[in-house]
């Protein structure tokens, strides 16, 4: 296949996967609205932090908190990943067999399903943000075109890091059918090291250093800080995101290769 034909093939497959998955997600629009609402945890954390620092002299600090947690809310909406659950279900029900016999790796189907879900979330996220800005007009800010663009690139990379991390864990289904329980285990470091419960600046230095050595801050804190215009080393952050994407991609390829060899086509 020539390079031109290859590019055309990739474009056509990507387009058809995204459009069919988008059509499917629209069938589940009520469920997606509920998922979007369930991502309000950063806003709950915001109200808790405001209670801790009610001092009006800390207005600037409070404004930063508003921006940070609203950005975190936005980042979470577009980095939601459930691949472990769906992969486990397909594995147990035997649907994975059909996918394995097609000339594209199932990875692309799962990632396109996530991306289609993100697109279908857009209107709900817009409505929720509008409500927040109507009721708390002080929290409204404009990050500027440059930070907005960098923020969205960082969100996309954050999604890739999180997706790859969950995909590697999903591969454990090849050895243990109930690998989705690991998702609950991943939730703990995600909650405490990603900057979801508090901005990483509020952490003791040692904990902050430990957190920065893991992929979790690059899943939430880094893009949130760009969007909220907090002080952040953008180049360093992007390098770490790309580094994690490379490492996790290599690990996922290895896990996939080993897993497929172990596959018993259960239920199929």
């Amino acid at each position: 296949m020539t390079i031109k034909k290859r590019i055309s093939y990739i474009f056509k497959v990507t387009y058809s996967l995204l459009t069919s998955q988008y059509a499917l997600m629209l069938e589940y629009r009520a469920e997606i609205a509920l998922w979007a609402i369930s991502g309000l945890l950063p806003l709950i954390m915001l109200s808790l932090w405001l209670e801790v620092e009610p001092d009006k002299s800390q207005l600037l600090e409070n404004t930063n908190l508003y921006r940070y947690f609203i950005s975190a809310f936005l980042v979470r909406q577009f980095t939601a990943v459930w691949v472990m659950v769906s992969f486990e279900q397909d594995h147990i029900e035997g649907k994975l067999s059909t996918l394995l016999l097609q000339p594209i790796t199932p990875f692309w189907r799962y990632i396109s399903s996530h991306m289609a879900e993100q697109i279908s979330r857009l209107p709900f996220v817009f409505v929720i943000l509008s409500i927040i800005f109507i009721f708390v007009p002080n929290s409204l800010w404009w990050p500027g075109y440059q930070d907005l663009l960098l923020g969205f690139i960082a969100i996309f990379f954050a999604f890739l890091v999180r997706f790859l991390l969950h995909w590697i864990c999903a591969m454990l289904c090849f050895w243990n059918e109930r690998a989705s329980s690991i998702e609950r285990l991943l939730l703990i470091p995600y909650l405490f090291l990603s900057g979801l419960v508090a901005p990483l600046d509020k952490y003791p230095d040692l904990v902050k250093d430990i957190a920065l050595a893991t992929p979790f801050p690059y899943i939430l804190s880094f893009p949130s800080m760009i969007l909220s215009r907090s002080e952040v080393d953008i180049l360093n952050g992007f390098l770490f995101q790309l580094g994690w994407i490379v490492v996790l991609s290599l690990l996922s390829l290895f896990a996939w290769k080993m897993g497929v060899r172990k596959y018993s086509a259960m239920g199929a």
């Binding site: 069919s20 499917l24 000339p103 594209i104």
Partner: peptide, 18 residues
């Protein structure tokens, strides 16, 4: 392999692309 909540034609279009 058909997508349960969509008409078969959607799965067919995806398969055609794949």
């Amino acid at each position: 392999q058909l997508i349960w909540d969509l008409p078969p034609i959607d799965t067919l279009k995806v398969n055609a692309a794949v």
